[in-house]
Amino acid sequence: MIEIKNLSFRYKKKTPLFKDFSLKAESGHIVGLLGKNGAGKSTLLSLIAGLIAPQQGQLNVNGFTPFQRKPSFLSDIYMVPEEFTFPSISISCYVKAFSPLYPSFDHEKLKTIFEEFELQRSSKLNQLSHGQRKKFLIAFALASNCKVLILDEPTNGLDIPSKSQFRKILVSSVTDEQLVVISTHQVKDIDTIIDKIVVIDEGQLLYEEETEKISQKLYFETVNSLSGIENVLYQESCPIGYRIMLPATAERESSIDLELLFNAIINKSI
C-alpha cells in the first residue's frame, strides 16, 4: 500500500515539483500513473522507491518510510526503470545473483514468463535487444512477487506482440496482495489492464478514480458527426469523425478511451 500525505519535494535550485501532494493506492490494484512530460511521474516513482527523500510530508509504502531503505522494504518493492543497464553476464547468472535477495521469488513463474516472452536463460544480457532486455526485467519483476511493483514506461521498446503478451502476463501474474504502479505515456498499451487512474500535472493530483467508477460516470464513443449529440463533455476529431466523451447513462456503458479521458483531464474538461 502506498500512502502519501502533504508531500513536498523540490530538486536543488529548482522550483517545487510537489507541494502538499496526497495520494493513496491500496494493494490489489494496477494503477496507471499518467501525466505530461515533466509532470513529476518519474520523481514520484523515485520517491516511492526511496531513491530520493521528500522535504516535507509523509510517505508510507507497505508500512515503511521508503528513504530509510530498510531491507524488508527493499525486498518487497521492485522497480522496472525506463532506462537500465545490465552487467555483461547471462540471464541465468543474473537470476542466480539477484533472485535470492527477494524472499518471495518464484522460479516456476519466471520459467513460465520466459516461455511466454521467448527468452533463453543462456542468452547474454548485453547481447539482447532493448525490447528483450525490457521483457527480461519485467519477467524478473513479476517473478519477484514483490508487494509493490513500479513499472516506468514498461511498454517502451516492446514490439506489438510483446505488448499484448505483457498485458496478458501482468494480469495473470498479479495477486491481490500486490500493487502495481505503471507510469506511461503510451496510454493505449495499458488501458485494458489498469483498474485505477491517477493523473498528475505540475506536481498536482489532477484526477484519481477507479476505472469501474469511470465507466459508470462516462461514456466514450466515436461518431461521424456531432450533430444531434448533446452533453458532450470533451471531443477530439479523428479520421472518421469525432471521438467524444459523454456522461454515462444507465442504459449505455463503454470501454474507457484512456487517451481521450487523459486529454480531457489535462484540458480541464472534467
Binding site: S46, G50, L51, P71, L74, M79, P81
Partner: peptide, 13 residues
C-alpha cells in the same frame, strides 16, 4: 542508472 539499481538491492546500507 546503476546507482538506482544498487541502492534498491534488498540489503541494509
Amino acid at each position: 542508472i546503476k546507482a538506482r539499481s544498487y541502492l534498491m538491492l534488498p540489503s541494509s546500507t
